[in-house]
Amino acid sequence: MAKDVQFRQDGKIGFLDFPRDVIAQTRESAYAAYNQLSVSKVEIVAMNFETSDYLNSAGIGLVISLVEDANRAGRRVFAYGLSSHYRKLFSMVGLTERLSLVANEQAMRDKLNPPPPPEEAKKEEPKKEEPKS
């Protein structure tokens, strides 16, 4: 099982796939992956925590650093795959102010490209629109 952060790109989205343990030792591979992301000039950073089941304070600090850097570069950051506990921790440290927490990748894509609402739905909920960031 991979211990490093992997980078992959899908168009303007750069994915950072975090490993099972997100700890201090993850830092090096995380920055390496993030640098690829910068080189690729992606606009969206998607942090995938679906396989992660342990994030300690060093790992969360690492996420904070990456998010702050991405924000400074004008990139939008999503995080998904987190358990409720870690969503709580992200919220505690203020990360939820800087990124969008979503349930999974599809939720992220839906958020970026919302499917056209069905006609009925449009009729019933004409005012519910995607909030602008």
Binding site: V77, S84, K88, T96, V102
Partner: peptide
């Protein structure tokens, strides 16, 4: 301390 629940998805950054 914020609470969180799987059913409560808040897009805080948005």
């Amino acid at each position: 301390e914020p609470t969180s629940d799987a059913s409560e998805w808040v897009d805080e950054a948005d």
